[in-house]
Every structure is written in C-alpha cells, then in structure tokens.
Design a protein around this nucleic acid. Structure first.
Length: 530
DNA sequence: TTGCAGTCAATATC
DNA sequence: GATATTGACTGCAA
C-alpha cells in the first residue's frame, strides 16, 4: 500500500522528511544500479540535502554517501594508507559500525559462516553475500557498495596487504572470513585490483568490505581470534579423524571449508585440470597477437593444431584478454602513482581515467606496454569505452567515430586479418599492411601462429606481453613501429608508461592497427590520416 | 551467441 | 604452509 501510494503520489523532495526520502533514495539506487554518481546528481543542487537525508537513514551509510557524493574526490583522499583517516573511509566508518557486526562476523561467522570449519550452513553456497553481513543484511552491504564513494582500490589493497603481512594473517583466512572469497581470489584481488569505476557493483563489494575492515579498530584482533579458533577446530578434527576413519566429512560437510576433506569423494567426478604446455601457451599468445578475437573457425583450427578442446581455447582467450586488461590497470595505476604522483591521490581514479585507454585495448595490453601495444584503445569497447577520451584524439580523426571502434569487430578475425602470417608479431602485420594494403593473408594468421610455436625463439619475439616482451623489441618490426610512433623500446617502456603521451600514442597506434587489419582483410580502400 | 566480470579451485611457486 | 597462477564456470548484458 505504501508503495502504491508513493509511486502514484510522490511528494516533492523538499516536502519529504528524512525518513520519507529514504524510499526514494532506495528507488534511485535501485534504478541506477551503479548509482554512484548517477543518482544523486540527478537531484542536482539538492544533492547535498539528498544525501543527507540518506544519511539520516542509516547514518553510517549515509555519511559515507554524503562525503562521497559531495566530495567525490574524497575517494582519492581515501587513498590508502597515506595519511590519516581517509575521508571515504570515514564515511565508511560509520558504516563500519554498522557492519562492524559483520566483522565480528568473525564470530558470527562461526555460526553462519564458512569460516568455521565446523560448518556452515549450506546457505553458504550462495555466492552472493557471504558471511559478514548476514546480520544486518545483505542489503546493507549492497547499499553500502552502491552508495560508497569512489574508493581507492589500489590503496585499499595495499593497506590490507600490509596489515595482513604485518600481523602474519593469511589471505585464506582473510578472504573466507572477511570477504567471503577463496584464497586465490583474494590473492588476485590484492595483487591486481581494478580501478573503482571499472568495477561492477559486485566487484566493488570486496573493496567495500576491505575498507570496512580496515576501519575496524579491532580488525586484526578479530582475525587473530578467528585464526586461533580455526586452529583449535583443526586440532579437534584432527584428533577425531584419527580415531575415525572418516574425518570431517560429516562435520565439514556443508562448508567449503571442508575442502580439504571433502574433495576426495568428489574427485572422481571432477575432470582433471587442463594444464597448457609452454609451447601451447606460446602458440596461443601468438594467435592472440594476430587476433585477439579469433573467429570460431580460427579457434577451431587452433584447437585442432594444438590438440586442445575448443572450449579450452575459448576460455584461454577470454581469460587472457581479461587478465591482460587487468595488467594494464595496475600498470596504469602504478605508473600514475609514480609518474604523476601529484596528480591525485587516488590512483584508482587516475587509473580509471587512464584505464580506458589502456583497457580499451583489449588487445594485448601487455604488449602494449611494451610495445606499441597493439592494443590500447581499440578494444571491444564494451562499456567504458565511450569515456575514453584519450583514445580518440589522435585516432579520432583517423577513426571516424568510436563507432569506428568497432572495437572488437575489427580486431576480430572473422576474416583473416591481413597480418602476415609468418610475420610473427602482431604488429608486424599492421606494418606490413600499411605498406601493402593487401598483404597476402593466407589463412588465419592465428592458425599459422599456432603452427609457429615450434619455431623457437624467433617467433617469441613477436610474442606478446608475457615474458619476452622485452626481447621482442629486438628483431622485430615492431621496433620500427615503435620508433615510428616514438614509443620507447622495450626496456624503457615501463618508465614511459607513466607518460600520458605514451598512452595516447598507444591508443592511436591501436586504432591504426585496427584499421589496417580491417583494411587488409577487406581490402577496403581507406584514406589513412595518420 | 558472444564477451566479460567475478570467482572457484587445482596447481605451481615461493 | 602461504601465496600466485590459471583453466573453467556462472551469470549477465548486448
């Protein structure tokens, strides 16, 4: 009834009490999904008030929001460790209290969460909101995430790492207890945090939890307690298991925790993990350089040649693209923090900005880093693309519209790219392409690439980012391109990364490459405006 | 259907 | 034993 009333007869904001505003804020958040800046802004001038109103709702959160919204930059401030309490953190702080319980979750977790060896409710399975927040509500955490100001993900992870190492706390414990994630995920998050605005709501959750945890004065103690309890539980199980052939099966049952134990039984059902051989990876990387988005046929060919399942090849490409993208994020962040240190405290912010460009390139970014990166910018453009201003510039002219950014499409190989098959490097192709508009592109470069593996070292140079990137610069044409665009040679590349100019160049280069490839494959005459 | 984000979980490394 | 890497999976969006 209330909803109906509200929907049909909403009162103007100014007429609403704080409490009365709450539902609207919630609706707005719900509508925005990302809410963040979107929402509040809507209210425009009232922004302030609005937030406040919210604040009133749940002080904790609100505060956070307020600060955030009102002071977006705060996020920056929040930057990690640095100084004192971060504004954002502050905001969150309040929340923290709110969530604090959650933290205690540690304790709570016992009952409800996995942390406990003992067992956890099957509910855990729910990926969604793991432990902590159970109490107050998942809502809280989600709201928090939604309303959270931009957080400095890089800084947060940095601090978390420090705290964990300083106190000799493991990632597993921290992840399962505080974040509701597995060790591997935690490791990944801590090592390669994505910039805040590149994260989805869900992806932000762990960072908000980390921030809350950092703000909790008793965070370490709680975790320590948890650690002790775990140890005890482990000992108990151990003892009992000794006497009992079937150790923890029963007890551990529900919890993933039981991992150790339970696995056995299910093992048989599991298929063995595929481990790609170095040569296979090399081949895939080469193929990737040629075509970050291989066509089904190419994938098929690759799979056949490498004797892998097509799904494995597909997964490999997906994973590689996404991981390379992340690599770029961090590099950007790091570069930013160093080079442009002054810029802003919040790396994330910076990165965010920069990211686009980099990220954009779904292509081997890494490479990009080193080499001209084929990548940047073009990228699949998926979401953030739009924002990338950087890219455009130079390219822009060249590239009609971002639309031109057919991003992925271009990159895709549907057709063969004109890339010189034999030419190892991806870049090469472009180069050659330029030279010859219509390079003979036999069949799928990728395919050829795959075959290449064998070729030893030589080929590698072309290889992307991964390892030999540095070496690559040597023999390859890429170098020519690099010089062409003023890109530093491999070695120096890293440093240069900080330079925004470099990003632009890379972006431009990417777009050019794309177009070249496209042109090569289609033979479409194009007027190149470099 | 395809690509991506976020994760898990098996392995590899340290 | 802890942490890092990485193939695979799930869910979502375009």
């Amino acid at each position: 009834g209330s909803v109906s009333d509200m929907l049909s007869r909403p009162k103007p904001w100014s007429k609403l009490t704080q409490k009365g505003r709450e539902p609207f804020i919630r609706m707005q958040l719900w509508l925005n999904g990302e809410l963040g800046q979107g929402v509040l802004p809507v209210q425009g001038q009232q922004q302030g008030p609005v937030l406040h109103s919210v604040t009133s709702l749940q002080d904790p959160l609100q505060q956070g929001c307020v600060s955030s919204e009102s002071t977006p930059k705060t996020s920056a401030s929040c930057s990690p460790a640095p100084e004192s309490p971060m504004s954002s953190s502050e905001s969150v702080k309040s929340l923290t209290e709110l969530v604090q319980q959650p933290c205690p979750p540690i304790e709570a977790s016992k009952d409800s969460k996995p942390p406990e060896p003992s067992d956890p409710p099957a509910s855990d399975s729910q990926p969604t909101t793991p432990l902590p927040l159970s109490g107050h509500s998942a809502l809280s955490i989600q709201e928090l995430v939604a309303m959270s100001p931009e957080l400095d993900t890089y800084g947060i992870t940095k601090r978390v790492k420090e705290v964990l190492t300083d106190n000799n706390l493991g990632q597993r414990l921290f992840g399962e207890t505080i974040l509701g994630l597995t060790q591997g995920s935690v490791s990944d998050l801590l090592a390669r945090p994505k910039p805040w605005h590149k994260l989805s709501l869900k992806g932000r959750e762990p960072f908000v939890r980390m921030q809350l945890w950092l703000n909790d004065p008793n965070n370490v103690e709680k975790l320590m307690d948890m650690k002790r309890m775990e140890k005890k539980a482990y000992m108990k199980r151990r003892h009992s298991s000794v006497s009992d052939s079937q150790p923890c099966e029963p007890p551990s049952v529900g919890t993933e925790y039981s991992q150790g134990a339970s696995p056995q039984p299910q093992h048989q059902l599991k298929k063995p993990r595929v481990v790609l051989a170095p040569e296979e990876k090399e081949a895939l990387k080469r193929a990737y350089q040629q075509k970050p988005y291989p066509s089904p046929k190419t994938i098929e060919d690759l799979a056949t040649q490498l004797n892998l399942k097509t799904s494995t090849v597909i997964n490999w490409f997906h994973n590689y693209r996404s991981r390379i993208r992340r690599e770029l994020f961090i590099e950007e962040i790091q570069a930013g923090s160093q080079g442009q240190a002054g810029a802003s405290d919040s790396p994330s912010a910076r990165s965010g900005r920069a990211a686009p460009s980099s990220e954009g390139d779904s292509c081997d970014g890494v490479e990009a880093t080193e080499g001209p990166g084929s990548a940047d910018t073009e990228e699949p453009k998926s979401q953030g693309e739009a924002e990338r201003e950087e890219v455009p510039r130079p390219a822009e002219q060249t590239e009609p519209p971002p639309s031109g950014t057919p991003g992925p499409d271009d990159a895709r190989d549907d057709d063969h790219e004109g890339g010189p098959v034999e030419g190892p490097g991806p870049l090469p192709s472009p180069a050659s392409a330029t030279a010859t508009a219509a390079p003979a592109a036999p069949e799928d470069a990728a395919t050829s690439a795959a075959a290449a593996p064998g070729e030893g070292p030589a080929a590698p140079s072309s290889a992307p980012p991964p390892s030999n990137s540095s070496s690559s610069s040597a023999p390859r044409r890429p170098s020519s391109l690099q010089s062409l665009f003023g890109l530093p040679e491999a070695a120096g590349a890293r440093d240069s990364r900080d330079n925004p100019l470099r990003k632009k160049k890379a972006a431009n280069l990417n777009s050019i490459i794309h177009r070249l490839e496209k042109a090569a494959s289609r033979e479409e005459p194009i007027e190149w405006e470099f």
